[in-house]
Design a protein around this nucleic acid. Structure first.
Length: 799
DNA sequence: AGCACGCCGACT
DNA sequence: GTCGGCGTGCTC
């Protein structure tokens, strides 16, 4: 029997099937989707079995060396998905498969040296190495001593030392010690009279019905490790290891919730979803529901419907740790049927959640992007909440979008896919208009609550009137008003594209990174300058590096600065600040939010992270300090992102009985992305933005491919990019536009120069093949040189 | 990716 | 003469 294997060597030359012989004892045991260890050239490496066959063209296939899994880690469906994904995103097959398994299962190949002869046979220089042991890690010897390495090589050749390859898994299952009485404990010699503690423990154990974890024995039996050990040693107790799940939410209690009665509008929207479920028909729905319209309840009831059919559900939410309230709603409704997968979990915790899914111990997974690969086998419904969020696109290889994966799986299982958003991406909304997706509009808030009133303040006018502070008169008034009424406020400081850089006031010099062409960011806590791309760090300079002037200052406004200003103008206000600095520690996000929820602060001040998912009844004011910060980023989606952010954050106000108000400060209040927030008019914004896209030839009117080339030498980069552009112009259709080469917006990162070119096309059936040829053509340079060519079939980031 | 094989310069 | 530099090609 032959196993078809994708080896764990991410390179274009090994990106194909290799045939291996299945040893007789593993016939019928090895299945597609399992990981194995195989000999590959002189070494041993990991591989994924993707198929079985009776025949092979290989003359003398080598046998599989070892088996890593008892059950497949990849289902038949996931194997197909991986293959499709590698074609779509032009990544290696093995990279696609690695993506689908938890990090704890990734393996490392360890190279070991083993003494295979008598110690004295070895060259004298080598003997000290093997004095105490006969196996050692290759890394211990290599690289530190050239002469020694030479001797080693000779000894290996002579057969005195053998090289072994060990494939090792990174994560371990967590086990706990369990204790129980030994079967024959009554026949043992009685305990000595003075062993009072031991006698107590024995009595305690006699009262138990089954094995008890060590932790519980100590706590409930009021005893210590020494006492336990004494009884173990004497044979009264037996210990066993039991696997336990690391439960990230062990200490959290969830209140059980029941389905809420749906409003008429909600009922109208859920109907087509349920019939798609009942008819086992794949369909992609775009649920366009304004903030506060009750989208989540629709998700919950649709999932419930799928579960009742004995099926499973996958739910994606943007960076789940950011929305504890969302988690609460899922856990509250489905309890232990839910697994959570998000980036705040440790490697081990993620592995445990993944295994719950794999063993069918849960039926619902709620998670971030990668949760879309949950190894379910009977998916009934797939939901992507806040579908416009850019975090659903992975910005490293494999550059995939979770939405595309969702639709693949939806097709496979003939089940509905729901994309939900108050501000859908233009691509999705355009598809809904073309009836590719089924549009489900939900235009009213539940209980017909009013959308918050939006006021836009022109900050130029404010300046003309002599107000140089960062708060407009209107916003300050509103804040004071809420403080007086004991209501709560959210203040958003849009920091994206607006970092704190250091500039000389005399000559205009800006401190930049010496490895990257990008300005350094000032970090107050360490009084240092940092590069956000390579991590380079330097002290804040006293004088300008260019002209020597002492008038060097940092510009830009951080949340800390706003907090200080706030303390000056509203000293009585209690402020919670939420940004990268205050939420870095695990769980701090939840802590800050629940403190705010308990009313321990009046103002929640933060960056983008306060815009999403918050639902507190006492929030009646939302202030946006600089609405246009993001507008000037050179990205065709900047208007779309601005509108989305403003609309999202507006939605935090007045979600319950109290009415909400939004004050948006802007230097370009007439811009359509800001103006249309006023009437919460997505439809109009969409029309205007589509006009711009058509004019500039941007998605959804065309598809875009971004090719980024980087190399330490700028001449090489330009040369390669020019060749790529010339090739593409020759190969692709006349209507297709190839732009470039141009320097990337981040022209240098980590001492590598970066150039890019862009393809805009409508119809190119052979495109992926053409791009593969580029990868092949520069393979040599990529393999040995320092050339990198990255291809993004659907870019969201143009740096 | 590694690793071996193979062909040229500068050393004991 | 050999050691070791790295370009080239292969791994079932």
């Amino acid at each position: 029997m032959i196993a078809q294997i994708i080896v764990d060597v991410p390179s274009s030359q090994t990106d194909r099937v290799f045939d291996y012989l299945i040893p007789a004892e593993w016939e019928g045991v090895i299945e597609p989707g399992m990981r194995v260890v195989v000999p590959f050239g002189p070494r041993k490496i990991q591989g994924f079995v993707i198929g079985l066959s009776d025949t092979t063209n290989v003359e003398k296939p080598k046998p599989i060396f070892d088996l890593l899994d008892a059950t497949p880690v990849l289902t038949t469906e996931l194997l197909a998905l991986g293959s499709w994904l590698s074609e779509q995103t032009l990544c290696f097959k093995v990279s696609a498969y690695q993506l689908m398994i938890p990090a704890a299962l990734r393996t490392k190949v360890k190279k070991e040296l083993k003494l295979a002869d008598e110690l004295h046979q070895l060259a004298p220089a080598l003997q000290p190495l093997f004095q105490e042991r006969d196996v050692m890690a290759w890394t211990e010897v290599i690289g530190q001593n050239k002469a020694l390495a030479k001797e080693l090589k000779r000894a290996i050749k002579a057969g005195h030392i053998e090289v072994h390859y060990q494939v090792e898994e990174k994560g371990r299952k967590k086990t706990e010690r369990y204790l129980q009485l030994a079967a024959n404990y009554e026949k043992l010699e009685p305990l000595p009279k003075r062993a009072l503690k031991q006698a107590e423990l024995l009595a305690f154990m006699e009262r138990q019905t089954g094995p008890l974890s060590m932790a519980r024995v100590m706590a409930e039996g009021q005893t210590t490790r020494q006492t336990v050990k004494a009884l173990l040693d004497k044979g009264y107790l037996q210990e066993s290891e039991q696997e336990v799940y690391r439960d990230p939410l062990a200490h959290v209690e969830y209140e059980r919730t029941e389905p809420l009665p749906l409003t008429e509008k909600q009922a109208a929207v859920i109907r087509p979803i349920l019939s798609s479920l009942d008819e086992e028909r794949h369909e992609t729905f775009l649920l366009h529901g304004v903030t506060g319209s009750g989208k989540t309840e629709i998700y919950l009831q649709a999932i419930d419907h799928a579960l009742k059919q004995g099926k499973e559900a996958i739910v994606l939410v943007p960076e789940i740790s950011l929305t504890p309230q969302m988690v609460q709603r899922f856990k509250g409704r489905f309890g232990s049927k839910v697994a959570l997968l998000h980036s705040a979990l440790s490697v081990g915790e993620k592995y445990d959640e993944w295994r719950k899914i794999q063993r069918r111990e849960v039926q619902v997974v709620v998670g971030a992007r990668s949760a879309m690969f949950a190894p379910f086998t009977n998916v009934g419904i797939i939901i992507i909440d806040e579908e416009h969020e850019t975090s659903y696109k992975q910005e490293e290889n494999p550059r995939y979008h979770a939405r595309d994966v969702a639709i693949f799986r939806g097709h496979y299982y003939n089940c509905p896919v729901i994309l939900g958003s108050a501000t859908p991406s233009l691509e999705s909304y355009a598809r809904a208009q073309k009836q590719v997706y089924h549009l489900l509009p939900l235009t009213e808030r539940v209980h017909s609550r009013a959308m918050p009133v939006v006021e836009i303040v022109d900050m130029r006018e404010e300046l003309r009137r002599g107000n140089r502070s960062m708060f407009s008169v209107r916003l300050l008034e509103a804040l004071k008003d809420r403080l007086a009424k004991n209501e709560q406020c959210v203040l958003l400081l849009n920091r994206r594209g607006y970092s704190t850089f250091v500039m000389c006031r005399d000559c205009g010099y800006v401190a930049t990174c010496e490895h990257c062409d990008i300005s350094l960011t000032y970090h107050r806590s360490q009084h240092a300058l940092k590069c956000h791309y390579c991590g380079h760090e330097e002290r804040m300079p006293q004088t300008c590096a260019s002209c020597g002037s002492e008038h060097i200052r940092f510009f830009g406004s951080g949340t800390q600065k706003v907090e200080e200003e706030l303390a000056k103008v509203l000293p009585e206000a209690r402020v919670i600040r939420m940004d990268i600095d205050t939420t870095r520690r695990k769980g701090s996000h939840e802590r800050l939010l629940s403190a705010f929820g308990r009313g321990e602060a009046d103002i929640l001040l933060g960056t983008q992270m306060v815009a999403k998912g918050l639902d507190f009844p006492r929030i009646t004011l939302v202030g946006v300090l600089a609405a246009d910060a993001m507008l000037h980023i050179p990205d065709f989606r900047s208007a779309e992102r601005t509108f989305q952010l403003l609309e999202q954050v507006s939605g935090r106000a007045g979600r319950h009985e109290l009415e909400g108000e939004v004050v948006i400060q802007s230097y370009t209040p007439e811009h359509y992305s800001i103006e249309h927030v006023k009437a919460h008019d997505y439809e109009h914004f969409f029309q205007v933005e589509m006009g711009h896209r058509r004019q500039g030839l941007y998605p959804p009117y065309v598809f875009i491919v971004l090719i980024n080339v980087s190399h330490p030498e700028i001449t090489k980069v330009i040369d390669v990019t020019e060749k790529i552009v010339a090739f593409l112009k020759r190969e692709l259709a006349d209507e297709t536009i190839v732009l470039g080469p141009v320097a990337s917006p981040l022209a240098r990162i980590k001492d590598r120069y970066r150039y890019q070119c862009m393809i805009k096309y409508r119809n190119e059936p052979e495109l992926r093949q053409t791009l593969r040829e580029i990868q092949q053509h520069f393979m040599r340079d990529i393999n040995q040189g320092h050339l990198q060519v990255s291809i993004d079939m659907h870019p969201y980031l143009f740096a």
